[in-house]
Design a binder for these strands. Structure first.
Length: 106
DNA sequence: TTCATGACCGTAG
DNA sequence: ACTACGGCCATGA
């Protein structure tokens, strides 16, 4: 496993409830600004094995990346449960809910 | 090692 | 606003 992957996992686990991060953000903080896809990949792989807050990770457009209706609804539900306002289309206000590790929002 | 793939991102029409 | 294309890089066969 690459160091990048481990860092990405740490960053993801560091996301506080009620906040979200984009793949690109996580990748950037993990050391690879262009490694957004690897973040997605590790989430897909690790979420089932580790306890990662995968639902707090969304794409740069502030929307849920899932294509499967089931998982999409699950993520929406979880986020709403944490106090994040999610539109019917899976739209989220990044300006309001984006978590910045350096800013220490928690 | 090489090839193909992916819960992405940014730019262009 | 939405669709299409190319680039990115770790992972698995």
């Amino acid at each position: 496993m690459e160091a990048f992957t481990e860092k990405a996992i740490k960053v993801i686990r560091n996301i506080p409830p009620g906040r979200v991060m984009t793949y690109g953000q996580i990748a950037s903080h993990a050391g690879s600004p262009r490694g957004a896809r690897q973040v997605a990949r590790l989430l897909h792989s690790m979420s089932a094995k580790y306890e990662l807050p995968w639902h707090r990770v969304i794409n740069a457009q502030g929307k849920i990346s899932f294509q499967d209706t089931d998982n999409r609804l699950s993520q929406t539900k979880l986020l709403q449960n944490e106090g994040v306002e999610v539109c019917s289309l899976g739209k989220i206000d990044l300006k309001h809910y984006r978590h910045d590790p350096g800013h220490d929002a928690f």
